[in-house]
Amino acid sequence: MARIEPAETLFLAPLSRPAPGSAGRTGTWRVVKPVVDLDKCTGCMLCWLYCPENTILKTGEGKVRIDYEYCKGCGVCANVCPFHAIEMVVEG
């Protein structure tokens, strides 16, 4: 196993660490936004499972909420919801 040491000379390597926002605040890309009707939501978590962005978050009450800072508004969640609890609403 290698020992990792800082270099004495100027050293830069093409390295990254996982972190949110590597393409900025992608919520600004959105033209339509998902709105969850919590009365219809049964907490089945299919939207959470299918969301490509990890922007559907589980709430303490066993339901979901949207991370609008990063949600790109693709609409996958609305389409997979068996209870039509997510509506895509035009931004603005």
Binding site: R3, I4, A13, P18
Partner: peptide, 19 residues
Amino acid sequence: PPRRQPYVISPETNLVMGN
């Protein structure tokens, strides 16, 4: 001496090389 290198790509480091 034993191998030295600036970084290692592994689950422990969780580093990404080259994006």
